[in-house]
């Protein structure tokens, strides 16, 4: 029943139409070789961090913890992922290190918001400010060079070759995770408790379930998924770190969450659209004839402008958990 309810409504229809349209446009451009870069592969690459972060945040917010520090977690885990890969001489372990770092940061954020009863917007902003400084401090302290570090090519996590193109294993994982998150939230007891903790923490408490643990766990899970997204950026996609690697991606993922109304599957679709929009703009911009006219700076704005357009159109009567972002105090 819940699966159906997700697909009901105008929003889901629009989203479905947008995804289908994206697929058709991508197919045409790929088939006729109109673009110098592969829209399909590029779109999936840039979708992945949005999807992982957004799905994690859906679980987070369902439980009542709103983490706007995702931007910072993405940036820090992009660095720790590379560090882990070099430390263990293995890209996959780098991804693991990234996810663990993200999980740790999500855990700390959970502690701060659940036990410290913190204002979550302020605490999340604190994480973002911390990340601006800490990423540069890490780059300087580990590699002794400011602002950028390039990964050795052999340590990058290679994509898998499929008949439809090269796809990173993390991308496949992200798509599966969105499905799993849906199952977790709507088909399991834990998922029921997570949703109840966000909706009516008193009731959960009365039922003898620890609201604090549910929320801390959700926050940790959300952080870990975000951390995997961060490590993906540096290890599978860009092949290194720059200090501004997250470049608003955490907030675009938040926009996906808002757009999806906390439904992981819709968040995945939103991530897909944002991912493809950016790559589509890029592919148009590098086309000879266009690239002489439109300065590259305007192409860089496309992800942000499209996010603004989408949230402006999409915001309507969203129903968010009643206790989302509100610390729970036992009476």
């Amino acid at each position: 029943m819940n699966t159906l309810s997700v697909l009901k409504g105008k929003r889901a229809l629009w989203l479905l139409a947008a995804v289908v349209l994206t697929a058709i446009v991508t197919y045409i451009i790929e088939e006729f070789g109109l673009s110098a870069i592969s829209l399909f592969e590029g779109g999936l690459l840039s979708m992945t961090p949005y999807a992982l972060t957004a799905v994690g945040e859906c679980i987070n917010e369902k439980s009542g913890v709103v983490n706007i520090g995702l931007e910072g977690i993405l940036a820090i885990t992009a660095v720790t992922g590379v560090y882990g890969a070099e430390l263990f001489d293995n890209g996959f372990l780098g991804l693991l290190v990234g996810a663990l770092t993200g999980g740790f940061m999500g855990f700390v954020f959970g502690l701060v918001s659940v036990y410290g009863k913190a204002d979550q917007t302020v605490a999340g902003t604190g994480i973002n400010i911390f990340a601006i400084g800490f990423v540069q401090y890490l780059l300087m302290s580990i590699w002794g060079f400011p602002g950028i570090h390039i990964l050795e090519r052999r340590l990058m996590v290679r994509p898998i070759y499929t008949p439809i193109g090269q796809i990173s294993i993390v991308t496949i994982f992200a798509i599966i995770v969105a499905g799993l998150a849906h199952v977790l939230l709507y088909k399991t007891v834990l998922g029921f408790r997570i949703r109840a903790a966000g909706e009516s923490p008193q009731a959960v408490d009365v039922a003898g379930v620890r609201v604090d643990r549910i929320r801390t766990l959700s926050s940790t899970l959300g952080g870990a998924l975000c951390g995997l997204g961060g490590a993906f950026m540096s290890l599978c996609w860009m092949g290194g770190v720059v200090k501004e690697i997250s470049a608003g991606k955490g907030f675009i993922a938040l926009a996906c969450v808002v757009f999806a109304g906390l439904e992981p599957l819709l968040a995945l679709a939103a991530a897909l659209i944002f991912g493809f929009t950016g790559v589509f703009a890029f592919s148009v911009a590098v086309t000879p004839g266009v690239k002489e006219i439109i300065p590259f700076y305007f192409v860089n704005m496309v992800p942000y402008i499209s996010t603004l357009i989408v949230v402006t159109i999409a915001i309507g009567r969203r129903r968010f958990p009643k206790a989302s972002g509100v610390p729970y105090r036992r009476e």
């Binding site: 302020v122 400010i129 400011p146």
Partner: peptide
């Protein structure tokens, strides 16, 4: 110590300030 450390410290201060019952 790289100078950007102070920005990290300021982020930590903000997180601490978010906690009303600190």
């Amino acid at each position: 110590v790289y100078s950007e450390m102070v920005r990290a410290v300021s982020g930590l201060i903000v997180v601490a300030l978010a906690i009303p019952e600190i």
